[in-house]
């Protein structure tokens, strides 16, 4: 499951642009992953310029 590290997103939309299944919602200062649609391909994690996305559930807080 892709998670957004709490309060660190800059809302630039790079992840949205590469998401192959349109599973990321972004507005002025809010981002959320649509988990039902997400296919866990992880490319949003790689492309994020500030490493805000993670598939590691241990230390991260889900932000939605």
């Amino acid at each position: 499951m892709i998670l957004v590290k709490d309060n660190r997103c800059d809302f630039c939309g790079t992840c949205v642009a590469v998401c192959p299944v349109d599973a990321i919602e972004l507005r002025e200062a809010d981002i959320s992953i649509i988990h039902d649609t997400c296919i866990d391909c992880d490319i949003c994690i790689w492309v994020c310029p500030i490493d805000v996305l993670s598939s590691d559930v241990k230390e991260e807080v889900e932000h939605d």
Binding site: T14, V18, D22, V47, I50
Partner: peptide
Amino acid sequence: DGVESRVGRMAGLRTATKLKDMDSGY
């Protein structure tokens, strides 16, 4: 509506960009 454009997708256009065609910038 910019690099994250979702309006095109809402209308069924294929806007998703391949990873190799996107630079991660700061």
